[in-house]
Amino acid sequence: MTTAAHHVGLTVTHLTKSYAGTEVVHDLSFTVRPGRITGFLGPNGSGKSTTMKMLLDLAAADHGTATVRDARYRDLSHPAGTVGVVLEPNAFHPGRSGRNHLRVLALAAGVPSARVDEVLDTVGLAPRAARRRVGTYSLGMKQRLSLAAALLTDPPVLVLDEPANGLDPQGIRELRDLLRARAERGHTVLVSSHLLTEVQHLVDDVVVISGGRLVTSGTVADLTDSAALVRTPDAPVLAARLADLGARVEHSDAETLVVSGLGLDKIGRAALELGVALHELSPQASSLEDVFFALTGSTTTHEEA
């Protein structure tokens, strides 16, 4: 419940973990900034969940450290009040009602029981449904209940493992709005997903891993707006000039260029200096999935666990 400003939300430094001699996370380092929604992306079995478990002190790292607001999770003065977590999609006793599940957590975390009804309302789980046994819930309802548990202490940091799984389009939109609102309050939000395209419009920053190793990290805009589409009747002249400026230029057709490695402003200025007419100058956005495939040379988003 602490809301003091922090420059660093989460820090992972040279994290390594092996199970039975198989390395599932290798020398992984990245940071997650407050006030942003960060996507932690990679194929199934790429090491996302294991990294989150090490971050939350549920699993011990072989090497490296992971900190929340510059402290190990176990050293936080009020861990449950600092980090809200969605980790396993089915971490409920099937015979207990959703409301009672939250009451148990609220009591342990020292949260007033009135907060239970607030978070149930926040995630759109109706009172009648909340009184039913969790064993009767759909996957989407369980995800909503998991999210309610994560929000119980109104924590300034959220760590969510595949929170959109099982949600219908309305649920995904509500999740996006909720996470956006928290990021705007300066909270830190880390969301993992193996569905790169699905979260592209949800996150600001991404950390992409594959085979337990960092593939890339940065803002979504930087990663996906890396090329520009230029249409001009003087394509060869402009192409030569842009190449001189260090851009990589491909001719799509006689009048169309795909330019990467140079910003739109510099392309426009070069055209102006040459007196070349531009019929179109627009960012050519690629999807995160395209970026992932380009960086890994992979053709699938599934890995052996």
């Binding site: 549920l58 861990p79 980090v83 977590v85 396993e88 409920f92 006793h93 957590l105």
Partner: peptide
């Protein structure tokens, strides 16, 4: 049921 996760998250 994996409810031990919540227990140890609240009390690491």
């Amino acid at each position: 049921h994996n409810t031990a996760i919540a227990t140890y998250l609240i009390t690491p």
